[in-house]
Design a protein around this nucleic acid. Structure first.
Lengths: 148, 148
DNA sequence: AGTAATTGATATTTATAAATGTCAAAAAAT
DNA sequence: ATTTTTTGACATTTATAAATATCAATTACT
């Protein structure tokens, strides 16, 4: 059998994740409702968290508790990632995309029927996976600007 | 005589500005201490605010009160403005600049002895003047990315 | 010269975001 | 089959960021 377990494999239940992070399951659901995280969902609706999800949540917790950035602030910061450059959106994709045109919410909180994002779960997209904290976001802005 | 009064002319005392905004003078000084605003300072140390400053402060108030973004969040958002592309920093300028290398604080909260920013008061720099709220910041990121 | 406004620094208050608690129904595990 | 966990929705608590208050010293008006 070919089961591969890596950092992206969803393995922790919500209670296991909560214990690892020393927070309550309510808090985890709140972060999800706010669009900070996108855990894997089974058909039943039950959530599963990967090691990557845990690390992402540690960053979020640090932003809230150490850096004193509010949840609304984190959402807005995520919304400034130039996702369209990472995904390779066409002009048409962009004109159909709220994530491109608006701000205040991360791109992965929008539904993507009519553009390039429809081919991939947001959870598996590098825009989501690679950007957990502000340092990485600034690096991305710099990299995209210097590269082209 | 050639006195020109426009939106950038510092004319309001701190108490006048506080009244216009319906806040206390303490709050205005706090925003300054946090690096959100850079009012004009007389030799005596007394502050003067322009019409532009008032509008900037309205944006900041709206971010805090309506959008629920914390002051630390606003600072981090400001720190994501690609200032080096606006000022035309050289590679050497960048390597000497904390605003380029770090994040969490707006570029105008750093001292700029040793790069292109030394020639202009931050208060008079378009990085500061043109970016009061998140919409403009996203627009700038988009514009810089599409232009080049 | 005398009143009013501003300064910075420290302490206090208040508003509310973030986190938890509770509940009944549904799903999963043993 | 029974126990445990998860679900969503609503209510409550708590921690603290944001805003004020107070103070003596300094500066600015008239």
């Amino acid at each position: 059998m070919g089961i591969i377990i890596n950092k992206e494999t969803p393995v922790f239940s919500i209670s296991a994740a909560a214990k690892l992070l020393n927070i309550s399951v309510h808090t985890l659901r709140m972060y999800e409702r706010e669009g900070l995280i996108v855990p894997f969902q089974k058909e039943s609706g039950h959530r599963l968290y990967s090691q990557s999800d845990i690390e992402r949540l540690r960053c979020i917790r640090s932003a809230i508790n150490e850096s004193k950035i509010s949840i609304a602030g984190i959402k807005t910061i995520y919304s400034l990632i130039p996702c369209w450059k990472i995904t390779g959106c066409s002009d048409n994709d962009k004109s159909n995309c709220s994530a491109y045109k608006e701000h205040g919410k991360p791109c992965w909180t929008y539904s993507h029927h009519n553009n390039i994002c429809a081919v991939l779960e947001c959870r598996d997209c590098s825009v989501y996976k690679n950007h957990t904290e502000c340092g990485t976001i600034k690096e991305t802005i710099i990299n995209i600007l210097e590269k082209q």
